[in-house]
Amino acid sequence: RNRTTFSTFQLEELEKVFQKTHYPDVYAREQLALRTDLTEARVQVWFQNRRAKWRK
C-alpha cells in the first residue's frame, strides 16, 4: 500500500477533531471518514500517528 497523501482540507478536519479529543470513538471516526473521503482505517491510523507526534 502506498503512503496516503492528505489534502489541506482533510488535515484541517482531522486536526479540528484532534483538538477536541485525542481518542475519537468509532462513530466520530466514521463521520470524519465520510466527510474527508477517507476510510475509517486511515482515520484511525492518522490518530495513532498524531498522538505519537503529540507525545514527543
Score class of each variant (00 low, 15 high):
Y23W: 10
A52N: 09
A52Y: 09
N2Q: 12
R3M: 15
K53M: 10
T5E: 14
K53A: 15
F18C: 00
S7R: 05
F47E: 02
R50D: 06
T39L: 02
R55C: 08
A33R: 10
Y27E: 14
Q44N: 13
P24A: 02
F9H: 08
D37H: 15
N2G: 08
T8C: 13
D25L: 01
E13S: 05
R50W: 00
T5Y: 06
N49K: 08
T5F: 06
L34R: 14
A33Q: 01
Y27A: 15
L11T: 14
Y23G: 01
Q19G: 10
R1A: 08
V26T: 14
V26A: 13
S7C: 07
T8A: 12
E40H: 07
T8V: 11
A28H: 05
T5A: 12
Q44D: 09
R1K: 14
F9K: 13
V43R: 01
V17K: 02
F6S: 05
K53P: 06
T8P: 14
Q31P: 00
K56V: 07
N2P: 07
P24F: 00
P24T: 01
A52F: 04
A33M: 07
R51F: 00
V43K: 01
D37E: 04
A28I: 14
T21S: 09
H22M: 15
A28V: 15
Q44R: 11
T39P: 08
P24L: 04
R29W: 01
F47G: 00
Q31V: 06
N2S: 08
F47N: 03
A28E: 12
R55P: 08
V43H: 00
R42P: 02
R35S: 06
W54H: 14
T21D: 08
Q10T: 02
P24I: 09
R55F: 07
Q48D: 07
Q10W: 01
T36P: 00
A52R: 09
F47D: 02
Y23P: 00
T5N: 12
F9P: 06
R51V: 04
K56E: 13
L14S: 01
R55D: 13
T4I: 11
W46P: 02
E30D: 05
E15C: 01
E15D: 06
Q44C: 13
F6G: 01
A52H: 07
V26M: 14
Q44Y: 10
R51A: 03
K16N: 08
D25T: 08
Q19I: 15
K20A: 10
L11I: 04
E12D: 15
N49E: 09
E30V: 11
T5W: 13
A41H: 05
E12S: 12
W54L: 15
R29H: 02
R35Q: 09
D25A: 03
S7P: 03
T8H: 12
K56R: 10
Q10V: 07
E15P: 01
W54Q: 14
P24W: 01
V17D: 05
V17S: 10
L14I: 01
A33I: 09
R51G: 01
Y23M: 04
V17L: 14
N2E: 12
R3Y: 14
K56G: 15
N2W: 03
H22V: 05
Y23Q: 01
Q48G: 06
R35M: 10
Q10F: 00
Q31L: 07
R55A: 14
K16M: 08
F6V: 09
L14A: 01
R29E: 02
Y23K: 06
A28W: 04
S7L: 06
E13H: 05
E13R: 02
E40R: 03
L14K: 00
R3H: 15
F18A: 04
A41Q: 10
T21P: 01
F47C: 00
F9T: 12
E15I: 01
F6H: 10
T8G: 10
N2R: 06
Q19C: 11
R3I: 15
